[in-house]
Deep mutational scan, measured.
Amino acid sequence: GGHPVTTQMVETVQNLAPNLHPEQIRYSLENTGSVEETVERYLRGDEFSFPP
């Protein structure tokens, strides 16, 4: 991942996926670069990993 992630982006995802840890959200956003894509992954039931 190398996309810039803002606190705003993390908070937006958190509102839609409250049971995800912020670190999981941030890591996913760094890989996708997209709030929409991260939320899609969540709704699909994809696994969210923590940063290594």
Rank of each mutant, 00 (worst) to 15 (best):
residue 1 G to C: 11
residue 1 G to E: 12
residue 2 G to H: 13
residue 3 H to K: 12
residue 3 H to V: 11
residue 3 H to D: 08
residue 3 H to R: 12
residue 4 P to K: 15
residue 4 P to V: 15
residue 4 P to A: 13
residue 4 P to F: 14
residue 4 P to S: 13
residue 5 V to P: 07
residue 5 V to H: 05
residue 5 V to N: 03
residue 6 T to D: 07
residue 6 T to R: 04
residue 7 T to V: 14
residue 7 T to I: 14
residue 8 Q to R: 08
residue 8 Q to G: 10
residue 8 Q to S: 14
residue 8 Q to K: 11
residue 8 Q to I: 11
residue 8 Q to V: 12
residue 9 M to R: 02
residue 10 V to I: 15
residue 10 V to D: 01
residue 10 V to W: 05
residue 10 V to A: 04
residue 11 E to I: 12
residue 11 E to H: 10
residue 11 E to A: 12
residue 11 E to S: 11
residue 12 T to P: 01
residue 12 T to D: 12
residue 12 T to I: 14
residue 12 T to G: 07
residue 12 T to H: 14
residue 12 T to A: 15
residue 13 V to R: 00
residue 13 V to H: 02
residue 13 V to P: 01
residue 13 V to C: 06
residue 13 V to W: 01
residue 14 Q to T: 07
residue 14 Q to I: 10
residue 15 N to V: 14
residue 15 N to E: 13
residue 16 L to C: 08
residue 16 L to R: 11
residue 16 L to T: 06
residue 17 A to S: 04
residue 17 A to E: 00
residue 17 A to K: 01
residue 17 A to Y: 08
residue 18 P to N: 05
residue 18 P to H: 08
residue 18 P to M: 07
residue 18 P to F: 07
residue 19 N to P: 05
residue 19 N to T: 13
residue 20 L to W: 03
residue 21 H to T: 15
residue 21 H to F: 07
residue 21 H to R: 09
residue 22 P to K: 10
residue 22 P to L: 11
residue 22 P to H: 09
residue 22 P to S: 09
residue 22 P to T: 09
residue 23 E to G: 07
residue 23 E to K: 05
residue 23 E to P: 00
residue 23 E to Y: 07
residue 23 E to Q: 10
residue 24 Q to S: 03
residue 25 I to Q: 00
residue 25 I to N: 01
residue 25 I to K: 00
residue 25 I to M: 00
residue 26 R to L: 09
residue 26 R to A: 08
residue 26 R to T: 07
residue 26 R to H: 08
residue 27 Y to C: 04
residue 27 Y to H: 10
residue 27 Y to L: 10
residue 27 Y to G: 04
residue 27 Y to F: 12
residue 29 L to T: 01
residue 29 L to Y: 02
residue 30 E to Q: 14
residue 30 E to N: 06
residue 30 E to T: 09
residue 31 N to Y: 13
residue 31 N to W: 13
residue 31 N to S: 15
residue 32 T to A: 03
residue 32 T to D: 03
residue 33 G to A: 06
residue 33 G to M: 08
residue 33 G to P: 00
residue 34 S to T: 05
residue 34 S to W: 01
residue 35 V to D: 01
residue 35 V to T: 06
residue 35 V to Y: 03
residue 35 V to G: 00
residue 36 E to F: 11
residue 36 E to I: 11
residue 36 E to L: 11
residue 36 E to M: 11
residue 36 E to Q: 13
residue 36 E to H: 11
residue 37 E to C: 08
residue 37 E to M: 10
residue 37 E to F: 05
residue 38 T to L: 05
residue 38 T to H: 00
residue 38 T to F: 02
residue 38 T to Q: 00
residue 38 T to P: 00
residue 39 V to R: 01
residue 39 V to S: 05
residue 39 V to G: 02
residue 39 V to N: 03
residue 39 V to C: 04
residue 39 V to M: 14
residue 39 V to I: 15
residue 39 V to K: 01
residue 41 R to A: 15
residue 42 Y to W: 11
residue 42 Y to E: 03
residue 42 Y to G: 01
residue 42 Y to V: 05
residue 42 Y to C: 00
residue 43 L to N: 12
residue 43 L to A: 07
residue 44 R to C: 05
residue 45 G to T: 00
residue 46 D to P: 01
residue 46 D to G: 05
residue 46 D to H: 10
residue 46 D to M: 10
residue 46 D to C: 10
residue 47 E to G: 08
residue 47 E to P: 12
residue 47 E to C: 09
residue 48 F to N: 02
residue 48 F to S: 02
residue 48 F to K: 00
residue 48 F to Y: 02
residue 48 F to G: 02
residue 48 F to A: 01
residue 48 F to T: 02
residue 49 S to P: 15
residue 49 S to Q: 15
residue 49 S to V: 15
residue 50 F to E: 03
residue 50 F to M: 08
residue 50 F to S: 04
residue 51 P to E: 04
residue 52 P to W: 08
